[in-house]
Design a protein around this nucleic acid. Sequence first.
DNA 1: TATTGTTATACTCTATAACTATA
DNA 2: TATAGTTATAGAGTATAACAATA
Lengths: 158, 158
Amino acid sequence: MGLDERRIEAYFALTEAHSLLQLLMEEQLKRDGDISYLQFFLLARLAQAPEGRMRMTDLADTVIHSRSGLTYHATKLESAGLLRREPSPTDERSVTAVITDQGRGLLEQVLPGHIALVRQGMFDPLDDPQTEALADALTLVRNHLRAMVPTSAERRRS
Amino acid sequence: MGLDERRIEAYFALTEAHSLLQLLMEEQLKRDGDISYLQFFLLARLAQAPEGRMRMTDLADTVIHSRSGLTYHATKLESAGLLRREPSPTDERSVTAVITDQGRGLLEQVLPGHIALVRQGMFDPLDDPQTEALADALTLVRNHLRAMVPTSAERRRS
DNA sequence: TATTGTTATACTCTATAACTATA
DNA sequence: TATAGTTATAGAGTATAACAATA
């Protein structure tokens, strides 16, 4: 078939590891902040952006969803007071999503448990060199995939 | 916070890599076999089990879903002729899911494109030592998480 | 009593295309 | 004409608890 056993194993391990991790995360985030995994990621992504703000379309691309899907979640997060949407001054078609203080507060509330779970679930079984190697490889793969996957705007065109 | 930048980066890379990969997979599987990622995994898991058969509860655990969720998908796959359900001879409460010839046929139809995509998306950016290291680390993490996550029966009890 | 699988039900999420407005 | 975001709507998937049958 052209892809050796070792690689197939690695692929399935990636998928299953991520599924299991996500199951644990979903529980933790629900418990600590009554928030979904996806919404946590949206807030986390916003929080690390300059001034906590990002254009809707760019935000959609980082989380892979269709724009309508992002609108759906943005509406929910906005109702909960965790982000707000502002018109862009430079391009009036654009909307900028901004994380609120309350949104940052929720992140702070949820992050300690989240990070503890990441450490426990993902890094406890690895020593330092293995951790380095994993980080290096995953970063390469992620960057490669980013280039391969069309943006939400590109997908829409076709 | 106790978890260094490198590890947080690796964690986010895992999540994003898997999301991007899944987006590509979903398209490929839909196109080549009109099947979802989850249903592909159910069939693939069955196909690699002895005699292509597995107890419903065990199958649910490998794919992480609730039992009712598995019943939902098993019903769809059965309607499509891709698996069948048989009563277990040893325990009459149990149901055994068995992949059909048609199910194996669909896997064969879909696998070449799938494997090509795995190679292109996941392994093209890695050299051999990096691939080895990634496989080793992900396998350790996966096994560790398997032990951490309660089975569907255990989750039900609580 | 405990376990297996199913069902009913309500809910969340997703995806498409149509729509408005700005560029 | 192309792009940004929203909306309407329809469909897929999910989770819970209640259920019947068996251990």
